[in-house]
Nucleic acid binder design. Structure first.
Length: 477
RNA sequence: GGCGACGUACCCAAGUGGCAAGGGAGAGGUCUGCAAAACCUUUAUUCAGCGGUUCGAAUCCGCUCGUCGCCUCCA
């Protein structure tokens, strides 16, 4: 609310109540929806990792003008549209590794609660009914504009506020809308109608999290008017502070412009996942701080893919080392690695505690990767070396686990890459080729060995000759 | 017009008062049959520009320029 970073102190010690605006189920999701979902998923995971008890609510708007329009266009009932795109949403989210919220309420299951809230607002003089509609009277709520830092006079003078004769002021917004012919409706004290958009979040958040709670999140485009209106409704109704900490993720841009439905410059999650591994998308979205804009491009996603590949290459090295390391105690150059290992968690916690700086956290991971590689390059062996390497692997897995990335085996990663890059041959035929080449190498028939290697490379497979055999991987990038 | 955010190397990006993380790309090297991977060296005496505060500024303040966002549905 201050517009600045603040120390996080939950209202109830050790417990975090968090409400995040989900989607309106009227169309397939684009990458912008993915960003919001992933950002708040990580925030939840990190808070839990730190031992806090988190209750996470994420709503789904299943009644709204856009849904009604879409339904009319497709000549089906509104709930068919809502159901269809809710399912699509969950499919996308599953693919992206976004965990489910603890509660995922639908607007239409909470009509009763909304009507109660609206009634209360009328009773308290903050809202007025007009011909079956109910409006919130903004001028009655003195704090209006405190989140979006707008003042009522400026808004009034703005020519873009739509004029509606029935409203007392152009700034007033609908709590309840009377239904027109053929539209879905619910019975209410003001006649047949449906709820306005903002009221569902007020009614559902207070039902599941209480009148005051800790974190409310969503995309930055929801700040005004949605979240501003939520504050007005909620605080007018309860007389209590609504939300302690507001968190808003930045936009995804395409050619510097906000990716959005109305501009038509959006990429759907489905389309992106046709070309990129889900982990790549996740990594990409975490590689910039959540509040900053992030430019979407193939080059960016390709870079993310290369970064992840570097990670899995090192995991492979770690595995190889643990399988083959000798027993003789050879310390190698372990000093830097040991130093980094002992400082690593503190560094990670520190940067994540500072407003969830995942980009910085990823940087630390690659520092550790480099030190681990350096250590392995120094050809260590023996029990102590193994322990260091095991510790490294565990730390990487732990931190990756919090961000829900880096949680595959290298084999799974390369198989997944193979699929997404649509490489058209089987692992068996690949192994056959490798065996054939191995034979050639034994005969020192380098020409043949190189031909096979080049042939595979042209198809997107990289071979790596190691002491005790040849391994394959999919060419990243 | 009002309000707000941002501008860090060739590209992406962290850093909000004490010697500029990390990734990609480029160049050179070590290793290798040759590669790949990895590692090493190298690429910002400088953080859009100008001025101020300070022992000290990418970081705080002011102005200028540039980009974007919100003010209407939006993640």
């Amino acid at each position: 609310m201050s517009g600045k970073k603040e120390d996080f102190v939950p209202l109830v010690p050790e417990q975090v109540r968090m409400y995040v605006c989900g989607i309106t189920a009227y169309d397939v999701c684009h990458l912008g929806h993915a960003r919001s979902a992933i950002v708040f998923d990580i925030i939840k995971r990190y808070l839990r990792y730190k031992g806090l008890k988190v209750t996470h609510v994420r709503n789904i708007t299943d009644i709204d003008d856009k849904i009604i329009n879409r339904a009319a266009k497709e000549n089906v009932s509104y709930d068919v549209i809502a159901k269809k795109y809710t399912e699509e949403y969950y499919r996308d989210m599953n693919m992206l590794g976004v965990s489910r919220a603890d509660l995922e309420p639908n607007a239409t299951d909470h009509i009763k609660e909304m009507i109660e809230t609206i009634k209360g607002l009328i009773d308290k003089g903050y809202a007025y009914p007009v011909n079956g509609d109910v409006y919130f009277e903004v001028s009655k709520f003195s704090g209006y504009g405190k989140l979006s830092k707008k003042n009522v006079d400026d808004l009034m003078s703005g020519a873009r506020v739509e004029v509606d004769e029935r409203k007392r002021s152009p700034l007033d917004f609908a709590l309840w809308k009377s239904s027109k012919e053929g539209e879905p409706w619910w019975e209410s004290p003001w006649g047949k109608g449906r709820p306005g958009w903002h009221i569902e979040c007020t009614a559902m958040s207070s039902k599941y999290l209480g009148e005051s709670f800790d974190i409310h999140g969503g995309g930055a485009d929801l700040i005004f008017p949605h979240h501003e209106n939520e504050i007005a409704q909620s605080e007018a109704y309860t007389g209590k502070p609504f939300v302690k900490y507001w968190m808003h993720n930045g936009f995804i841009t395409v050619a510097k412009e906000k990716m959005s439905k109305s501009l038509g410059n959006f990429f759907t999650i489905k389309d992106i996942l046709e070309k990129y591994e889900p982990e790549v998308v996740r990594y990409f979205l975490l590689s910039t701080h959540y509040r900053s804009p992030i430019e979407f491009s193939d080059a960016q996603l390709t870079e993310s893919e290369l970064s992840i590949d570097r990670y899995y290459s090192t995991v492979t090295r770690i595995k190889d080392f643990l399988e083959t390391a000798g027993a003789a105690e050879k310390p190698g150059t372990s000093a830097d690695l040991e130093k980094l290992l002992s400082a690593f968690k503190d560094k990670f916690h520190h940067t994540m505690n500072d407003d969830f700086n995942t980009a910085s956290a990823l940087g630390f991971i690659f520092e550790l990767i480099r030190e681990a590689n350096r250590f392995l390059d120094s050809k260590p062996s023996g029990q102590k070396a193994k322990e260091l390497v095991i510790k490294t692997g565990e730390l990487l897995a732990e931190i990756g686990g919090v961000m829900n990335i880096f949680n595959k085996t290298p084999e799974e990663w390369y198989r997944s890459l193979m699929k997404v890059k649509k490489l058209e041959f089987s692992e068996e035929s690949l192994l056959l080729k490798i065996a054939e080449r191995q034979e050639a190498r034994k005969q020192k028939d380098w020409a043949k060995a190189d031909t096979i290697r080049k042939e595979l490379e042209a198809k997107g497979i990289i071979l790596e000759d190691k002491k005790d055999g040849t391994t394959w991987k999919v060419k990243a990038g």
